[in-house]
Amino acid sequence: MKRKEASIWQLYLTFLKIGGLTFGGGYAMLPMLQREVIDIHHWVTEEEVLDIYAIGQCSPGIIAVNTATMIGYRKRGISGAIAATLGEVTPSLVLITMLATILLQIQDNIWVQRAFGGIRVAVCALITQSVFTLSKKSLIDVPTVLLYVATVAATLAFSLSPLMVIPAAILYGLVVQRLKRRKP
C-alpha cells in the first residue's frame, strides 16, 4: 500500500474526530483509528498501526495520546506529533469543561444527588469488572500474583505511594524473568 502525506491541519482534525467519537479512549479507539489512518487517509499500514498501538500501551501516559503522538511524529515530525495530540485531547477539554460547569451548578439539587448516589455504585461495579478483565491478562503465574497481593497490601495498609510501586515493579519483572531463564 502506498502511504500518503499528511498536513499538520489534517492531523489535528483527524485526531480531533477520533477523540470526539471514541468513548473510553485506549482500548476502544483501535477500530476508529484503523478506519481513519488506514482506510480513509492511507497514512500508515495495518502492521504499523498495530506496532504503534503496542508501543502506546507499554509507554508511560495515556494510550490514546501515545498513539496520536507516534502517528503524528511519523507523518510530520515534532509539529505533527503536537498537532495530533492536541487534536486527540480537544474534545475532552471542551466537553468536560462544559459538563463540569453545569454539574457544579446543579450538584445541590436533590435529584442530581440521588442520581449520583446510584452512579457511584455503578462505577464501583465497573471498576470491579476492569480489575477482573485486567487480572486475566496480567496475573499469569505465581510471581505476578505475589506482586499483585504485595502491591495491594503495601498501598492500602502501609500507604506506599503508587509512584514508588511503578519502578519497583519494573525491577521485579526484570529480576524474576532473569531468574526464570537461569533455571534449567
Partner: peptide
C-alpha cells in the same frame, strides 16, 4: 528488557487499580 519490565509492571498496575477500587 521492556518485555521483562512490563511483566512485573502489568501485575502491579492491576494491584494499583484494585487499591483505587477499594478506596472507591
Amino acid at each position: 528488557y521492556v518485555k521483562d519490565g512490563l511483566y512485573g509492571l502489568r501485575a502491579a498496575v492491576v494491584g494499583l487499580i484494585t487499591y483505587a477500587g477499594l478506596k472507591l
